[in-house]
């Protein structure tokens, strides 16, 4: 077994672009679910809209990169309004069903043949990231120790990604310690009480939906630029489920929770996915039990199991305060 490769890729996944994209998506979801108590099961749609907004603007319509970024952000805000205006007045579980349905609609539209002239159908779109990589100041690969190395492209997207993460965290931190954040957290506890104190709850929930959607859409850009491609099935429902796992792992309603959650999530998943095929090759795991193609499935089983165990035994997340969670019965 080549432990240096296994450990190398696992360590890389602590800071690489994929981890950043999931962290940004989870920071947005944390605003919805952790702070406001909104059950948004369509977060993947925010990332998808942003990624496709960028890709279509550049690849399909030939407009500049920065306009693409603007279109993507606008798309995320419009999606938040479309989802929120009708549903934020309704019971919490309706928001869950509507958002999950909307996310699926968005994905099906992206992959539909009828719109493939613009979206590329199930193939998705490529050739929109040149504007981004032309700004790349790095020229060579960087190696840290002997185990970890990143090429220039990955370094550039990682640099931008970490700057976005830092900005997002500062935003969330400032917003949540302000009186605005106090209203948001109060809505999570009991909307009716907040209403009875003269706050326009629907308006605040809408602001939260927009803020979290826009923060999440940054993750959409990172994924799209990292792959230099957008594909509809990236933005499926399971993506949102992983974000929930990450938010809960890191501790809901904690500023750094999503980043720490995403790091742990990707480190473990990468490790499992790297170690299992090696172990099967080396004969440590009998092939009647698991062959190399099953290793991927095993990773997902671990994600599901982890999510369940966390919610049962540590609902506050790895670093959260148990007392705080036990205060209410939800």
């Amino acid at each position: 077994m080549s432990w240096d490769i296994i450990i190398g890729v696992s360590l890389e996944s602590l800071i690489n672009a994929t981890m950043i994209a999931y962290a940004l998506a989870a920071i947005g979801l944390n605003v919805h679910f952790g702070y406001t108590g909104l059950l948004n099961f369509g977060q993947s749609a925010f990332l998808g809209i942003a990624a496709y907004g960028l890709a279509m603007t550049v690849a399909t319509f030939g407009l500049p990169f920065w306009i693409g970024i603007g279109v993507g952000l606008l798309g995320a805000v419009i999606l938040a309004l479309l989802l929120g205006i009708p549903t934020l007045r309704l019971r919490a579980d309706y928001l869950a069903i509507v958002t999950i349905a909307a996310a699926e609609i968005v994905r099906l539209l992206f992959r539909s043949v009828s719109l493939s002239k613009w979206t590329g159908g199930s193939d998705g779109l490529q050739a929109f990231s040149d504007g981004f990589y032309s700004m790349n100041p790095y020229s060579g690969a960087v190696e840290i120790g002997t185990l970890i190395s990143f090429d220039a492209r990955e370094l550039w997207i990682m640099t931008v990604g970490w700057v976005l993460v830092a900005i997002s965290l500062v935003f969330v931190f400032l917003a949540m310690r302000s009186p605005w954040g106090r209203v948001i957290k109060a809505i999570r506890e009991d909307e009716d009480a907040v209403r009875s104190l003269g706050k326009n709850v629907v308006s605040y929930k809408m602001q939260s939906l927009i803020l979290g959607g826009v923060l999440g859409s940054l993750g959409g850009y990172v994924i799209a630029l990292r792959n230099a491609a957008v594909q509809p099935d990236t933005y499926g429902t399971e993506f949102t489920f992983y974000m929930y796992t990450i938010v809960i792992l890191g501790g809901a309603a904690r500023v750094f929770g999503p980043v720490i959650g995403s790091m742990i999530f990707w480190f473990l998943l990468t490790f499992i996915n790297a170690v299992l095929p090696e172990a099967i090759d080396a004969g440590y795991i009998p092939t009647w039990f698991m062959d190399k193609t099953d290793a991927g499935a095993f990773g997902y089983i671990c994600v599901g199991l982890g999510l369940i165990l966390l919610l049962i035994f540590r609902p506050q997340g790895i670093f959260g305060d148990k007392k705080e969670v036990m205060l209410d019965g939800r």
């Binding site: 809960i248 499935a297 089983i301 999510l307 939800r330």
Partner: peptide
Amino acid sequence: GLIGMMIISIGLALILRYIYLW
């Protein structure tokens, strides 16, 4: 709590689905 159970059901769905795949 009910919300907790709902998210637990998501985890269970993942486990079962990928056991089927396995």
